[in-house]
């Protein structure tokens, strides 16, 4: 029986007329979110490792060390976490096409990120233990260092987006790159809050 001859009326779905183009910016954003979710799994793996090591290692604290100082890291934390609010203002300014305001807030975010990194470098220099000193030393520098690398990446990406804002009309039709960098920044902040609780508050 040759069924190919039996023709029946076919109603193409309504959205079939939406031709060849697909939502390029939406696709890019979706891909970036998928990437971030995967990236967060690396951090969660490190967190799980940290918890496992902390709860099983006999002498956890490195020699010559009672407690980590919490005060200046806490200041650092406040600066980094509030930068999430600042980058939100930057994004909102861009949505309303206020380019200068966007640049001011955007640059302020980078500056706050840089403050965080410098603060962390100062803290690292003052610590009496190194990367190879015990399980705690390794875990501490691994987690804060890996996070710091993400902060640095975020700042570099912010500079890239800032530079792009000087291309005339570049962000008129859409700014998915800015949205993505901003998402990345929120991600880095949330990770830091968890890290801060794990390392500094849970001693």
């Amino acid at each position: 029986m040759d069924s190919s001859l039996t023709s029946q009326p076919i109603e193409p779905p309504a959205h079939a007329t939406a031709a060849h183009t697909h939502d390029v910016q939406g696709t890019s954003l979706f891909g970036f979110i998928v990437f971030l979710l995967s990236e967060s799994m690396i951090f969660f793996s490190f967190f799980a490792g940290y918890i496992a090591l902390k709860t099983t290692t006999p002498d956890w604290s490195p020699p010559g060390m009672e407690q980590l100082e919490v005060f200046s890291p806490a200041i650092n934390t406040i600066v980094l976490v509030s930068s999430s609010l600042v980058i939100y203002f930057a994004e909102e300014a861009l949505k309303r096409h206020k380019l200068t305001l966007f640049r001011v807030f955007w640059f302020l975010t980078s500056a706050m990120g840089a403050y965080f990194l410098v603060g962390q470098a100062i803290e690292w220099r003052s610590l009496p233990f190194g990367f190879t000193d015990g399980v705690f030393g390794g875990s501490f520098y691994l987690l804060t260092g890996f996070h710091g690398l993400h902060v640095l990446t975020g700042i570099l990406l912010q500079f890239l987006m800032l530079a792009r804002s000087f291309i005339p009309g570049n962000y008129d039709t859409g700014h998915v790159g800015v949205t993505e960098v901003s998402l990345f920044w929120h991600f880095v902040d949330v990770i830091w809050i968890i890290l801060f609780c794990l390392i500094y508050l849970w001693q």
Partner: peptide, 9 residues
């Protein structure tokens, strides 16, 4: 001024 993100994608 083609948006750079579009070229990326």
């Amino acid at each position: 001024n083609v948006p750079i993100d579009r070229v990326d994608v």
